[in-house]
Design a protein around this nucleic acid. Structure first.
Lengths: 191, 191
DNA sequence: AAACACATGTGACATATGTCAATAAATAAA
DNA sequence: TTTATTTATTGACATATGTCACATGTGTTT
């Protein structure tokens, strides 16, 4: 995700510097410690975050109380509970900090206000959405079609930082398998 | 999806009638028979379709040759192999007709040209993307966290037309389970 | 260093779902 | 209508993955 975001921002800057400055100016900075909840289940999400440092996880609970991680966020990722952000209904998703985070954030109101005011900002958002949509599409296939081992391999090849930086407990949830199964796969792979 | 699309189009019309007319004018109409391929695996997708009648399926192949349906399209759905459409790389996805279709379509070139020309068209696309992103997010959780029976129940309650209108062969692929398992679940449910 | 909490590894066993094969039912073709 | 083709059902069995219980390891706090 990383450079894609800065690319788009540069495009925005060169296309309409005034829009860029105003957009940039609407961000505030903040930080959060490991374990903190950025967006809590049941709340209405009205902020868009950009991670500058640290790791966060997005997850949902099933009725049985189990946590299911849908995505991890690293440096330069856009982070928000998108469904709630867009619909302004209570969020089923929750976002929590795995490793101490520094971030900037902008309110939903400012996002939409600036998107309405500046065509170039609107374009920025459309392009970011495209990227995340594609990412989501890839994950869909991954979840639907691959076995536990294949999923692990996929992540190993395509998102190696996930494996390097995340505790297995979290990674297994993301893969949609149990910790035990992940542990056994790792053993097999390392032989 | 249905009315959401027409809502957005109405919004576009009232916001900028000129943009709306030009956008609308860029569509051509067409049709396809059951079994036809709208977008084939390996091609570059440069059209955006709007289904007016019929049903289509979007799917990908695994290396082992098995087909995995990621989504079904019904009346008034936007249809395209989004990843290929955006990136202009060859498509991993394929789109095929399940029930004879009538549709209108617009070229990628016209989409982006009009989005760049008219802020209101850009907004239309951003909003459509938001909707599809949310939909995709829901499906993600569905695939990751639910058992075969739970998935069936989910579809039964949330997309009943999927169950009414689609052959089980296709539905099972969409659910990420085998035909046999689906058949057994249906038997159990109907008791 | 000791004590603790938390994450990971391992074994025995349970279970959901897949696989394969054979009918039955439904659709399409002749 | 009859035949052919595809789709759905059902049974016996295989297998991947989950569950539970406990051991081992790792890092943190005192």
């Amino acid at each position: 995700m990383n450079d894609i975001m800065s690319q788009r921002l540069e495009a925005l800057e060169s296309k309409n510097n005034q829009a860029f400055l105003e957009f940039q100016g609407a961000f505030k900075s903040g930080n959060a410690k490991k374990g903190d909840i950025l967006v809590s289940h049941g709340s209405i999400c009205d902020q868009l975050y950009v991670l500058q440092k640290g790791i966060a996880k997005q997850y949902r609970y099933k009725e049985d109380g189990t946590e299911h991680i849908t995505w991890f966020n690293f440096e330069n990722d856009l982070v928000t509970a998108y469904t709630s952000f867009v619909t302004q209904k209570t969020s089923k998703e929750e976002i929590a900090v795995i490793e101490d985070c520094e971030y900037i954030h902008i309110s939903r109101e400012n996002c939409y206000r600036l998107a309405a005011k500046y065509h170039a900002v609107e374009t920025f958002f459309r392009e970011m959405l495209e990227i995340y949509f594609i990412q989501s599409d890839e994950r869909l296939f991954f979840l639907q079609a691959l076995s536990a081992t294949q999923k692990y391999d996929y992540v190993l090849h395509n998102m190696p930082h996930f494996i390097q930086k995340l505790p297995q407990k979290e990674l297994s949830s993301f893969l949609g398998i149990t910790r035990e199964t992940l542990s056994r796969i790792r053993k097999k792979v390392s032989l």
